[in-house]
């Protein structure tokens, strides 16, 4: 599904190297987690994959189902099936959440050569999915993320994911700023989307999210590289001993 080879990335404006040769391969239906200390390059990886400006890829590649992602516009990556749940979902005053969702769904359908959803069909689907995420009609009407609480913003991300049905989902610190109940709600939303044809890359600082979203593979990232890969037990190790041991062991 997603294959990253020897990815090197630096900041465009300053001459600062962030990723120093990331290798990662995620198969269909798999859930991978990336953990790592602050500044290790986890969020940069998610931004580079989704096409945010400001980064320069100096070496390497990233493909989704064999298509080179790094040469595509962000919207083309989305249409190809990539989705990033933002760590800090963006507030967009003046654009209604519903208008936003419908524009996004139909833009992707159009890009894939499918018919646009009618207003009625769209409404039916969105209401159904919103209900399971406990997103009420009022939240759908409000401008995108404006005045939403931290938990509401993250739930709104998962709603977008549910509506867009991507094949490859990246969750960038989706647990940050959430209380236990909100985290459970978000995790349930993610778990409901797990399927044989859909893969996840879960970026997190803490093991607790992985209690709810069970990963198949856990990677530890530090200083712009993946330094260790293992099973779910690796996350538990980090939780009890911190990153220091692993860094020492590898370093």
């Amino acid at each position: 599904m997603l294959e990253i080879n020897n990815l090197h990335v630096k900041l465009e404006e300053e001459d600062k190297v962030i990723l120093r040769g990331v290798d990662l391969k995620i198969g269909p239906g798999e859930v991978h987690a990336i953990m790592g200390p602050n500044g290790s390059g986890k969020s940069t990886l998610s931004y580079v994959l989704s096409g945010r400006d400001g980064y320069e890829v100096t070496e390497g590649s990233a493909t989704l189902d064999g298509q080179e992602l790094l040469e595509m516009e962000p919207e083309e990556r989305a249409a190809a099936g990539l989705f990033l749940a933002f760590q800090y979902p963006v507030e967009i005053p003046g654009v209604g959440n519903m208008t936003f969702l419908r524009t996004a769904v139909n833009a992707q359908r159009k890009a894939r050569g499918e018919d646009e959803l009618s207003a009625g069909d769209f409404l039916k689907i969105v209401r159904e999915k919103a209900k399971t995420l406990k997103i009420d009609a009022e939240m759908l009407k409000r401008p995108v993320n404006v005045g939403f609480s931290g938990g509401e913003k993250k739930r709104n991300e998962i709603l977008q994911m549910a509506m867009l049905e991507p094949r490859m989902c990246i969750l960038d610190e989706t647990d940050s700023g959430l209380d236990v109940d909100a985290m459970k709600l978000v995790a349930d939303g993610v778990n409901a989307l797990r399927s044989a044809g859909r893969s996840f890359l879960v970026i997190t600082h803490y093991q607790r999210l992985l209690d709810h979203i069970k990963p198949d593979v856990v990677h530890i990232m530090a200083a712009g590289r993946i330094i260790k890969t293992g099973g779910p037990e690796l996350a538990l190790e980090v939780e009890s001993n911190g990153y220091a041991d692993i860094l020492n062991e590898v370093g």
């Binding site: 989704s50 400006d53 919207e75 963006v90 967009i92 003046g94 833009a107 992707q108 867009l164």
Partner: peptide, 28 residues
């Protein structure tokens, strides 16, 4: 707002359309 523009694009909305949405929001 480039951040908002990227957010919209990352959901599959082409840049031009995303820009138009933001401009209309500005004029709202």
């Amino acid at each position: 707002d480039e951040t908002a523009l990227f957010y919209l694009q990352s959901r599959g909305i082409p840049r031009r359309r995303a820009q138009a949405l933001l401009v209309l929001a500005f004029l709202a």
